[in-house]
């Protein structure tokens, strides 16, 4: 089956001053997959995410979004593309002066003319989708726990029913139970809404639990991509260390245990 690449990165180069972060980086994101990005600290995982989102201007290279290169787009086309994706930042990045329900409604109000009752109903649906209780709606972000803030952030990312969501370390800062629940939530939503997920993560359990494909960032580019089984067969020292280290083995053991029960 021909896979449709909805985002194509070609020959990307990023540098800050004389420090080169990415050089000749190529990456495809296919429709309907859950792609996990891994890499050591400072390999520019978040920079890659920000570059694809247009928050960071690359020094060179082409970024194709839904079949069109970013440089060739008119501002109107860029805005249209922005409506087709949702982003969950590391700590949710909820607007602190708005309640959770209002946060979800921000993009809907900005882009569409919907009556207030429909806005409220849609907010209720999103809140239920991400597994937040009804009482969370009128609360301000400062009144929520870290896990709830991430769920609220995800609800806001899903406000316009995007085709692809970008998650920046979605399980960082959550306890293991909360992290596992969040993994389940992402998997569930991905299946229910037919989402494509681009996920920057350090969490091996997440990689095993929900990612179809993994891209390893090292040596300033995407070193390899493939399924988790393919990763464990790689010879590159860093990848070996990453997937066969003590934490990697623990994640495999957990996966096998879960598969057996």
């Amino acid at each position: 089956m021909e896979r449709e690449a909805i985002i194509e990165v070609r020959g990307l180069r990023n540098q800050f001053g004389s420090q080169v972060i990415h050089d000749q980086l190529d990456l495809d994101i296919y429709r309907g997959e859950v792609l996990g990005i891994v890499g050591g600290s400072g390999t520019g995982k978040s920079v890659l995410l920000r570059t694809i989102l247009g928050l960071n201007k690359p020094a060179a290279g082409r970024i194709g979004l839904f079949g069109k290169a970013r440089g060739d787009m008119t501002p109107a086309e860029e805005r249209a593309v922005e409506r087709r994706w949702g982003v969950l930042f590391q700590d949710g990045a909820l607007f602190s002066s708005l309640t959770v329900a209002q946060n979800i409604q921000v993009a809907l109000k900005e882009h569409l003319h919907l009556p207030q009752y429909l806005l409220d109903e849609i907010a209720a649906v999103k809140i239920a989708l991400v597994g937040l209780p009804v009482e969370a709606g009128p609360k301000f972000p400062s009144e929520l726990s870290g896990g709830m803030r991430k769920r609220a952030g995800l609800a806001r990312a899903l406000a316009l029913d995007p085709e692809i969501v970008f998650l920046d370390e979605p399980t960082a800062g959550l306890d293991p139970i909360g992290a596992a629940a969040f993994d389940d939530l992402i998997k569930n939503l991905q299946e229910t809404l037919g989402l494509t997920v681009f996920m920057v993560t350090h969490d091996l359990d997440s990689l095993y639990a929900i990612c179809n494909r993994i891209a390893v960032l090292a040596e300033k580019r995407v070193l390899v991509t493939g399924t988790i089984e393919e990763m464990t067969r790689q010879d590159h020292p860093w990848i070996k260390e990453y997937f066969h280290g003590p934490r990697g083995r623990a994640a495999v053991a957990a996966k096998t245990r879960n598969a057996m029960t």
Binding site: T99, Q105, D120, E121, L129, E191
Partner: peptide, 22 residues
């Protein structure tokens, strides 16, 4: 199949949510 899943999922959202605190 996916449409049926989606319809079931939104049914869970059938509960009024307050947007602003009292």
């Amino acid at each position: 199949g996916p449409q049926a899943t989606l319809l079931n999922a939104v049914a869970k959202g059938d509960r009024p949510v307050r947007v602003e605190p009292h």
